[in-house]
């Protein structure tokens, strides 16, 4: 089974849940920006949650199905159509051979994910299918997709087979995932943070602004990081930092005082002061934010951040179990 790209859109890449284990060699983690939508897309088609799938930015992508294929589209609402008709999101769709899937215009959220039953068949590089654009490795020949590229899919799991036969059955029950349990695509986002390493080195006025004022996502927002704009953040005294590890959601403050949140394709180390860290449970919401969206930071403890993550993981686990149940019974 395969698809052929007609128009690549702004930036369409193969991603998975990231390339771990090689950060000490300077190899970035990468992976899906919104890992929740990504994992749910794979679940809906019966794949492993970490299987390779497409990350689609905003609009412009179109491709043709070369065979009948089970797919799921999740993430931001980018108004996908199949043969000109609005395509449903967050549920399994059995697409007919020769159909064209297209992302036209209008959006809430910045990124959509398309999972294909069987997963995208590209080789693992350093144990991951994520596309690492700067090093030209992983994904499809280490680059974003282009017109004419053909993507092959792997073998179907028995869960995928069960889901397909359900969809073909005349008594099949429609179902979809209630994504609101996990994320939303509001223009004003509450984003929970914990203190960063240098939190206490910032002025009282700066910390007050960080927590009580809004920060706007600027147009300089890509897979590496989101440049924010708001009340400038200043340290009580200048001090030189030595480079050390950073992670997804680290909020760094360069001398301009305007914070940058590090995202999926961040470098492995950074030398700017770290005022705060977005909690893992809120990274998907952050990743779906668009330029001009407003972020409101809410300070929580590590224990609260962990608790939010455990609850989210429990809900994802329950969802995976219920999908498997639908496929097999």
């Amino acid at each position: 089974m395969s698809i052929t790209i007609r128009q690549p859109g702004i930036l369409t890449t193969i991603q998975d849940l990231g390339r771990y284990g090689a950060q000490k060699y300077g190899v970035i983690v990468g992976g899906a920006m919104d890992a929740i939508s990504f994992r749910i897309a794979n679940m809906i088609v019966g794949n492993e949650q970490s299987e390779g799938a497409l990350e689609v930015v905003l609009f412009g992508l179109s491709f043709e199905f070369n065979e009948d294929t089970l797919i799921a589209i999740t993430g931001g609402q980018l108004y996908p159509t199949i043969d000109g008709k609005s395509a449903p999101m967050w549920r399994p769709i059995l697409v007919k051979k020769g159909s064209i899937l297209q992302f036209k215009s209008g959006h809430s959220g910045s990124r959509a994910y398309i999972a294909f039953a069987g997963g995208i068949d590209v080789p693992d590089v350093l144990e991951s299918k994520s596309t690492y654009l700067n090093a030209s490795l992983g994904g499809y020949e280490g680059r974003a997709l282009k017109a004419g590229d053909t993507l092959q899919f792997g073998e179907l799991s028995h869960i995928s087979e069960g889901l397909i036969s359900n969809l073909q059955s005349p008594t099949s029950n429609d179902w979809s995932v209630n994504y609101q349990t996990f994320l939303n695509f509001k223009k004003h986002q509450q984003i929970r943070i914990v203190k960063g390493s240098e939190f206490d080195e910032f002025t009282e006025d700066s910390l007050d602004a960080l927590i009580n004022e809004q920060y706007t996502v600027t147009t300089r927002a890509d897979r590496m990081g989101y440049q924010l704009e708001g009340h400038p953040l200043k340290m009580t005294e200048e001090f030189e930092l030595i480079s050390e590890g950073v992670t997804f959601g680290t909020i760094q403050v360069p001398t301009s005082g305007q914070p940058i949140v590090l995202m999926a394709d961040r470098q492995t180390a950074g030398g700017y002061p770290k005022i705060a860290q977005v909690i893992t449970a809120d990274l998907a919401k952050l990743a779906q934010s668009l330029p001009m969206n407003q972020l409101f930071f809410h300070l929580v403890t590590i224990e609260e951040a962990e608790q939010a993550l455990f609850e989210q993981e429990q809900a994802l686990h329950d969802l995976a179990v219920s999908i498997r149940f639908k496929a097999l019974y």
């Binding site: 090689a22 000490k24 030595i242 050390e244 992670t247 962990e306 993550l309 455990f310």
Partner: peptide, 21 residues
């Protein structure tokens, strides 16, 4: 444990808190 990354004077250790919890 996920991975560890050394720098000049620190080691950053990445882990899965869900597994540990």
């Amino acid at each position: 444990f996920i991975e560890a990354v050394p720098s000049y004077n620190s080691v950053t250790v990445y882990y899965n808190p869900v597994t540990i919890y």
